[in-house]
Design a protein around this nucleic acid. Structure first.
Lengths: 141, 141
DNA sequence: CCTTGCCCTGACGCCGACGTCAAGGCGTAC
DNA sequence: GTACGCCTTGACGTCGGCGTCAGGGCAAGG
C-alpha cells in the first residue's frame, strides 16, 4: 500500500510517516514510480510506535520495540531491550507522579491558606466591630 | 541594584530577567547609563515568579500573582485572579496525575505480561520434555 | 594606554514531533 | 486538454523558556 493508505489505516499522517522514515524508524520500499510501498507488517510496526507514543514514550524509546518486531518476534516487547525501556519508563512515571503529587499538595495548601486569609478579611469588613480596628492582623489601619 | 546582582540574589540569570522584561512581567527602571535598576520589591516579585515556575506554572500564569503584589497586596495570592490560577492548576494537576497513573498501570501490566511470556519460554527451553511442543499458549499449568 | 568587568541590544540556537507551505511529477478521469 | 488526486523532496514554522553568541559602551584600576 502507499503512504496515504497506511497513514489513514494507522490514524496518522503522511508527514509523520516520512518523519519516521527520516529518523530511520520505519524505512519504506519504493515502487517503480519512486512512491513508498508498505505492507501489513509495516502497519503492525507503525501501530506499535503509535501505541507507545500514546503512552508518552519518546520516539527513540519505541525503537527497541520496532526492532524486536522486525527481528521476527511475535510482540514488540518480546526482547530484553524493550523490557528495559518499560522498566525505565515505570521509574520515570513513578518519579514524575511523585513530584506532581508533592506540587499538588503544596499548591492546595497555598490555596487553602490564601482562602482563609481572604475570608478573614471579608469577615472583618462585614462586622467592623468584630475585631478592633487596631488589630495588627488585618493591616487595614 | 543592577541586573547582575538581582539575578544572583534570585538564583537566576540576567538573560532571564531581560526575557521577563520583554514579556512585560518585570519591567525595570533605568539609571543614567541606561542600565536596569531594580529594588527590593522587584526581588520579591521575581521570587514570586520563580517559586511558581518551580511548581510548573507557565510564565503567563504567574502574571496575576505579580500584578497582585504590584497592586500593593501583601501576598501574590491575595487576589481572586491568583486564586483562580491556583484552582485551575489543581484541576490540571489532578487530571495529569490521573492520566499518568493510568499509563503507569497499563505499562506495568504490559511489563508483567511480557515477563511472564519470557519466563514461560525460558522454562520450556530449560525442560524441553516438560511440555509438549504442541501445547496451547497460556494453557500450561 | 590597556585590561577587566559590568552593562546594552539584537539575533540565532535548542528541544520534539511533527504542521504547513512550495513546487513539481505521474496517472486516471472527464 | 486539463483537472484531480496522489505522490515526491525541501524547507520553514510552531511552542516555551531561555542559552549563547556577536558586537559595542562605559567606568575603574594598573
Amino acid at each position: 500500500m502507499r503512504i496515504g493508505e497506511l497513514a489513514e489505516r494507522a490514524g496518522t499522517t503522511t508527514r509523520t510517516l516520512r518523519y519516521y522514515e527520516k529518523r530511520g524508524l520505519l524505512p519504506a520500499r519504493r515502487d517503480a514510480h519512486g512512491h513508498r510501498d508498505y505492507d501489513e507488517r509495516d502497519l503492525k510496526l507503525l501501530r506499535q510506535i503509535r501505541t507507545l507514543r500514546d503512552f508518552g514514550f519518546d520516539l527513540e524509546e519505541t525503537r527497541p520495540f520496532v526492532e524486536c518486531l522486525r527481528a521476527g518476534h511475535p510482540e514488540g516487547d518480546s526482547c530484553p531491550a524493550s523490557l528495559a525501556v518499560y522498566r525505565r519508563k515505570l521509574a520515570e512515571l513513578d518519579a514524575l507522579i511523585g513530584e506532581l503529587r508533592a506540587v499538588r499538595a503544596t499548591v492546595g495548601a497555598q490555596l487553602a491558606r490564601a482562602e482563609r486569609a481572604r475570608d478573614r478579611l471579608a469577615a472583618e469588613a462585614a462586622v467592623p466591630g468584630g475585631l478592633a480596628p487596631g488589630c495588627e492582623l488585618g493591616g487595614n489601619q
